[in-house]
């Protein structure tokens, strides 16, 4: 067997990791604040369409990234309205919003470009820039979450909302902020896919990457750097399985397709004991009435 761990494999791993990593970081911020985000996939696909349309309009993929982040933020706002303010069930609201975004993006795309015409290909950003941006965002998130009062308050809002409230912070505001930031990051992830490696938009182009991101948050035990490492590991598994499949033809190829998930499972099992979720994750905050 040829060496499969080449520079090419590693760069493939990076390309596969960046969109997922950004979305996972979004999910991480959100869950730290105590909000379970099952709308990640919906935020990603909205960011992907936003990024595509804006790049197509302006010719600048950087504008596309901003637009993608904005589209994601909008979805985040809707989610926070539903789960933070109305205090709807976080699982159903998140799932419902994902369904809504997937359908709405497909509908809009088709309404804009119609049947039988070729939607234009858009300008793309080089992978180097996207990787640097991703690392910078992780560094920023790590710094804010662990080194600032805002970050501590945010984390506390996910662990002990009652105490945070007693200290004078508005739990619901912290959570709304976290949900919008989560939308920005996941939207950026979707836009990074479309404005980076692909340069086109398709129905359901994010293809379940938001769900993988959700798994990575737990895998990373809610820590930013581990989250980035997890995304890289996942990307590496995918890049490797594609290369191994061609060489080990005696093994059923389906095993290779399942490999990234099996490895994530194995890692989860090995690391499981140490995990510690935000204690109030998924609980709507309600102030005791007097």
């Amino acid at each position: 067997m040829d060496a499969v761990l080449t520079v090419a494999t590693l760069s493939a791993a990076l390309r596969l990791a960046v969109p997922v990593a950004l979305a996972a970081l979004g999910g991480l911020v959100n869950e730290r604040a105590g909000v379970l985000n099952l709308a990640l996939e919906g935020m990603m696909i909205s960011g992907a369409l936003g990024g595509y349309l804006a790049t197509n309009e302006t010719g600048s993929p950087w504008v596309g990234l901003v637009a993608g982040a904005a589209a994601g933020a909008l979805v985040g706002l809707v989610l926070s309205l539903a789960v933070v303010h109305v205090k709807a069930n976080q699982m159903v609201a998140g799932l419902g919003i994902t369904l809504l975004c997937t359908a709405a993006t497909t509908y809009l795309f088709r309404t804009i470009f119609g049947i039988g015409t070729v939607p234009p290909r858009i300008e793309r950003i080089g992978m180097d820039a996207l990787v640097l941006l991703t690392i910078a965002l992780f560094a920023l998130a790590w710094f804010v979450l662990t080194r600032t009062t805002l970050g501590l308050a945010l984390t506390a809002a996910g662990d002990a909302p009652v105490a945070v409230d007693a200290l004078g912070y508005r739990v619901d505001r912290l959570r709304t902020g976290a949900t919008v930031v989560s939308g920005v990051l996941a939207g950026l992830g979707g836009a990074a896919l479309v404005c980076g490696p692909l340069g086109l938009f398709l129905e359901n182009v994010t293809h379940g990457r938001g769900w993988v991101a959700l798994a990575l948050v737990v895998f990373a035990r809610w820590r930013p750097w581990a989250c980035l490492a997890g995304a890289l590991l996942f990307g590496l598994c995918d890049a490797l399985q594609l290369r191994l499949q061609g060489q080990a033809t005696a093994v059923p190829y389906e095993l290779f397709l399942a490999l990234p998930y099996l490895i994530t499972l194995a890692a989860l099992v090995v690391r499981g004991r140490a995990s510690r979720a935000p204690l109030a994750l998924g609980e709507p905050f309600q102030r005791a009435t007097t």
Partner: peptide
């Protein structure tokens, strides 16, 4: 599409 592209790039290495 992304997985399709990566599959192909893996083959391009060969």
């Amino acid at each position: 599409v992304q997985m399709g592209k990566e599959t192909a790039l893996g083959q391009v290495d060969g």
